[in-house]
Amino acid sequence: MDPNQPVGENYANPRTCFFHVLFKAAALAFYILSALFIDNFVIIFVVTVLLAALDFWVVKNVSGRILVGLRWWNEINDLGESVWKFECLDHESLARMNKKDSWLFWWTLYLTAVLWILLAIFSLIRLQADYLLVVGVCLTLSIANIVGFTKCKKDAKKQIQQFASQTIASRFSSTLQSAFSVV
């Protein structure tokens, strides 16, 4: 309306945002709608769980690193221990990340988990153990991504603080050196 109002910031990666939301919405919609219209449990289970697994993979490997610059995985080192690996962009690149992309990423992660929890409560109320199996699998995948990216984000903040400390120390020594060279 107002011509002087600045144009709002658009999504930097609309296609990635679309796929980030698509599989979540598809899994939830298929589960809810098929519970109303389809009576075949096997079809409901297979399609819903496959969509949830596909969503897990896309969020973890694609949209996580494109929308918020984070990535996480787990591997086993030569000593036979389980090791967490986190990757994040450096400080300048993280600052350049689109705020709307990041907002959409985190909110859809939490919203999906909340919805699956609600559906689990409904399955419990209706005493449907088999549908609880579907919701349990989807909820496990959703929470796994939330915890993984939360840990990754904390690790990214820790790295940024270390980088800032090193920068300050480097500037301090540089200042001392230039002062003594003047003398």
Partner: peptide, 17 residues
């Protein structure tokens, strides 16, 4: 440019990387 860090912890989550 990116940076990578490692932290040893028990892994209760699914990883496919």
């Amino acid at each position: 440019p990116v940076s990578v860090s490692v932290s040893t912890a028990p892994s209760p989550f699914i990883s496919s990387n």
